[in-house]
Nucleic acid binder design. Structure first.
Lengths: 344, 344
DNA sequence: TTGTACGCGTTATCAG
DNA sequence: CTGATAACGCGTACAA
């Protein structure tokens, strides 16, 4: 049974088998696969027939070993259960795939130590390039990458000192922009709820706070944060907690992501609060659902898919020896104002 | 060797370097890494120091080539932008990771031909096992897998004739269960909206239909389907279309997934329809948000994460030569009845 | 255009 | 417990 199959060294069809069948040497078969135009039409066809006939599938391990080209791009993301990262992944996969690269992805569970371990794993596969999330790698991790001498792209955040290349957006500016927009919408007492306080969320809060402080409108008890993983349910909890401690005063809430914002919106409905009348709500990440709730939810849109595409494209370009151009790219964001902050 | 340094193969620290540094032979270093207990405490420590000192990272290509063990599990899913599949992926990653396996994942974009191409790619990496989605592989694809003689698990659907192992749920039964539940809830004129009509969705519809037909309550014009990709927006569209063509008659709608159901729910609110009074709604997949909308949305919960976990565990067991037990596992589903169908 | 010889970094096998 | 030797399957470098 195949459930108990144990692969021995004799089963698979090898390049040599194809060569023998086609009556040519191994290297010719190799050429047909990798540099078809360096082989005459006739032999190419003969070899191709042999390949099809025998069902030959090249052994990438052997190829990588011999050529020092793995055609693998390593990718490390903090979580698979957050659409924010899977959208970026999609961009990476789409570009890498059409360029003939495989993607080896690992999940770091939001841990720098786990990331270091995973990077080690990835490096053992001889990736030709690496994509990492954010800029909080351990020193050891950074050293490993440096030593590997491969292109590295850090995505999601905009970093002051990227290891190599960087594609992201400024979460600080985004947080600041939300504060500005809520103020211009006529709200005056702004609260914040946040969960899974990673670097990006902290930056959003910092930007938000900086604007409020410059206006003398920041108060610590208008902020409700937790390190627990974000969820819709938690959004409801945090919102209720914030209202409990600052209710009747806070008139708008910036939720650090759309999970929380949705939770807050649904909870406010259950509490009999009118959004945007009694309370304004703004999220972050602009999930598809946010545009369709009633009232629709204001949020900050970040070009996630494009981020993945750009990162992958920079890598492909670099690997092809091309001119990468700007090594640090700010892809920008957009505050999508909808009914939940339509106060005036 | 001459003026031009050989950039390719000279950079990395190899096993031989470590061996030399530690004053042992290469194979001993290999043993320290793979079978530590077959080496004396003293040499083991010396070698470990050398490894750390030189920052040695094993070359997996060489290892795979020599040992015919890649420690790679290939996974093919139809889409990265559907949480349904990323949840399963998470389960696979969690189990594979803790068992020392890497996961090589590909996105088939819901195409059997693309899947075949991707499987070819995966096979070239000498995976020790493979996880595929559904049972609609091309014949060529199936032949490739058979020839590879590795454990294969098909997930998501429950198949009549799995290639090897199978973990999933019966989408037919789930669709039937929804019809039963809506009928017992007091609804009598049931409609259906569906998008991205893949095998699983068609099965849900078939099950739904079979129950209604057995009661003489099925009418073709109560069904609105499209092959377009599913989305919340599309859910609104389909719902409006269905109401346009059967409004005032249909009193409950089964939406083939929660994206559509959310779209239908929000659209019904905008149309001034009362859910569950005027119209009942039931989705599929039980997204987190469905439990928190107002009214909360009834849906069918499928153990996605557990599906990934189970598939990976079966593979690990098989690879370790253990007893897999049932090769075909029905993980079941649960109809979560919430406010959107609370009619009586 | 095609082929020969060798090496890539690691592990299996068999000795000692 | 440790080591020498021979693969593993393919690509590079050079030769013909």
């Amino acid at each position: 049974m195949s459930t108990r199959a144990r692969k021995k060294h004799s089963q698979a069809v090898t390049l040599a088998d194809v060569a023998q069948y086609a009556g040519v040497s191994g290297i010719t078969v190799s050429r047909v696969i990798n540099h078809p135009n360096k082989v005459s039409q006739a032999t190419r066809q003969a070899v191709q027939e042999a390949i099809d006939m025998l069902g030959y599938i090249p052994n990438q391990s052997a190829s990588s070993l011999a050529s020092a080209r793995s055609r693998v791009i390593g990718v490390a993301i903090p979580s698979l259960s957050n659409i924010v990262f899977t959208d970026v992944l999609r961009g990476i996969y789409d570009v890498a795939g059409t360029s003939g690269y495989k993607v080896l992805m690992v999940d770091t569970h939001y841990s720098a130590l786990e990331e270091e371990r995973m990077v080690r794993t990835l490096l053992s596969q001889s990736p030709e390039a690496m994509i990492l999330t954010g800029g909080e790698q351990t020193q050891a991790c950074e050293r490993l990458l440096l030593k590997a001498k491969i292109p590295v792209v850090q995505i999601m955040d905009l970093l002051d000192e990227p290891m190599d290349m960087n594609v992201g957006v400024s979460h600080f500016e985004a947080g600041a922009a939300v504060a500005e927009q809520l103020l211009s919408a006529g709200y005056g007492q702004l609260g914040f709820i946040g969960a899974r306080m990673d670097k990006r969320v902290r930056e959003r809060l910092a930007g938000f706070k900086s604007v409020l402080e410059s206006r003398g409108r920041f108060w610590r008890n208008f902020v409700q944060v937790t390190d627990r993983p974000s969820s819709i349910e938690l959004g409801g909890e945090l919102f209720r907690a914030l209202m409990g401690q600052a209710g009747g005063v806070v008139d708008a809430v910036f939720c650090c992501n759309d999970d929380l914002a949705l939770g807050a919106l649904f909870e406010s409905q259950r509490m009999g609060l009118d959004v945007p009348g009694d309370i304004g709500l703004c999220g972050f990440n602009d999930f598809e659902v946010s545009a369709f709730t009633n009232p629709s939810l204001s949020s900050v849109a970040v070009p996630r898919y494009q981020m993945g595409v750009t990162a992958a494209e920079m890598i492909i370009t670099a690997l092809n020896g091309g001119e990468v151009g700007q090594k640090r790219r700010d892809l920008g964001f957009e505050v999508a104002l909808r009914q939940s902050t339509d106060h005036l």
